[in-house]
Amino acid sequence: MAGRRPIIEIRNVDKYFGEFQALNDVSLTIHAGERVVICGPSGSGKSTLLRCINRLEEPSAGRLTVDGIELTGAKDTLRRVRTEVGMVFQQFNLFPHLTVLENLTLGPMRVRRISRSEATERARKYLDRVHIPEQAEKYPSELSGGQQQRVAIARSLCMEPRIMLFDEPTSALDPEMINEVLDVMVELAGSGMTMVCVTHEMGFARKVADTMVFMDEGEIVESSPPDAFFSRPSSKRCRQFLDRILEH
């Protein structure tokens, strides 16, 4: 990734929930087009870090710059950043009272201010991209988990963000549906999108990651290219973690 422009810069970020420190002096630079996979044990702060990037959580200290915009508390920077950063949640979080198509057009129409017909066209394009063009008129509850997650990905893509964040997108899915979602993510990675994925799908990580990040107890313990990361992790904690999840 050398020579590329940094698109996310995280500098010495701390995050406290009351007394509890969820992030401890985290620094990380992510370049445009880079694909980062974050892993680590439960409670290590992976979600919190991801949520700081699009300001679902407010860092307690440190600096965060996304696409040249320094994230401060101000409302307009917040919304600007959120339109540039798409987020896919473990629990999909589709809007259950809206059809798939309406889920996809809401953001572009209200935030990007494009017309309904243009938004619909765009929505159909991204439904195609996630391989479910035929489900546009259904409600989320009528779809399988894998289909719902792909709709959620399409919903984020409809905002045409520069960065996509994924927070364990496959861990709420039945095993047979995991691959259909991962396939979509691999295709997305191939299109040059900047991606930050929290996941324990190591097969996927090996295939797409430019950088592997291992977190533990609120700290980034290790950050290296996948080759090095999987063959000779430098820290003991990381090695133990990998041994545990690669066993099965």
């Binding site: 679902l56 959120r82 339109t83 987020m87 629990q91 979080n93 589709l94």
Partner: peptide
């Protein structure tokens, strides 16, 4: 989660 999804779309 619903609010967060709405927020992360920039609504």
């Amino acid at each position: 989660g619903q609010r967060e999804a709405a927020g992360s779309l920039g609504l």
